[in-house]
Simulated assay, not measured.
Amino acid sequence: MKILVLLLFTIQISAQVGVNTTDPQQTLHVGSNTGTVRIESLDGDNSPYNAGDVDGDLDFTNNTYNLYVDALGNLTTEFKPLYNSNGSDAVDDAAIPVNFVTLTNSDTDGQADVQITLFEVTVARPAILEVKYNLSFDVYLDAAKTVISDNYARRISTYFVISGVGTRKYGPVSKCYSSGSTLSITGPMYNASTAYIQLPAAGKYDIQFYGEVSSNVKGGGGGTTSKAAYVEFATGYDAIFLRLH
């Protein structure tokens, strides 16, 4: 009787591999002044995130798409931000604790603000955070939604702050609203902005979005000329986009 014994060995080779080079400088080194790397799983026929020859000119070199690396080191053309409302309403005014802010005629500094919503981001290293937002609001004279008709302007501002990186207001943007007629049409208006923030270390960061309304404050003392206003935020379809770099 004959017995065949098959021995399987796992051999680990620590070496640098060179393609078109005899002196590789990295684990995988592709040499040549004109050489490129082609991964067919990422092309227009195999990847749903590669649009291929989108302009239809049969030139496959002038349609390029971003290449990303996921947490496992895999290469992909799929774009996955931290958060993307992607057409849905990012902030539901009925779901947030407080969606309005009131400014009175007697307000001493001529401004009032409210936190609209909050997002949490956790990073394992220092990073740059990209934030894009588009936040809606409606402007009235008071909580009864009386139409403003006094011809005085109210400034409605939006911005966000991030815990752990100071008190700076990021992405500030403002619009002024005024009306001289009770027949004026009300409805959602929008503030949109983009900002890039350096997150200095690993940890959790709170992104706090604020809305603010302000009007004139009389200079030199002697009281205020601020005008009453009532602003509701997140009344339309809001958009928020978060990405790490």
Rank of each mutant, 00 (worst) to 15 (best):
K2M: 01
L4E: 00
V5M: 04
L8K: 05
T10N: 09
V19T: 04
N20K: 11
T21Y: 03
T21G: 09
T27R: 10
G35D: 02
T36R: 12
G44T: 00
N46V: 02
A51T: 03
G52P: 12
D55V: 02
G73P: 15
N74I: 07
L75C: 11
T76W: 07
S85W: 08
P97T: 01
V101Q: 03
L103T: 02
T104G: 00
T104C: 14
N105T: 10
V114F: 06
Q115D: 10
T122G: 15
T122Q: 11
A127Q: 13
A127M: 08
L129F: 08
E130T: 14
V131F: 01
K132E: 01
L135N: 02
D138Q: 06
Y140H: 11
Y140D: 02
N151Q: 11
N151A: 14
A153P: 01
R154A: 06
R155E: 00
S157K: 13
T158D: 00
T158N: 03
V161K: 05
T167W: 05
P172N: 04
S179Q: 04
T182C: 08
T182N: 03
T182R: 11
I185M: 15
M189V: 04
N191H: 04
T194G: 11
A195K: 13
Y196S: 12
I197R: 09
I197C: 05
G203V: 04
Y205S: 01
D206R: 15
I207T: 01
Y210S: 07
E212R: 14
S214P: 14
K218G: 07
A228V: 03
A229M: 11
F233C: 13
A234M: 13
A234P: 13
F241Y: 15
H245K: 14
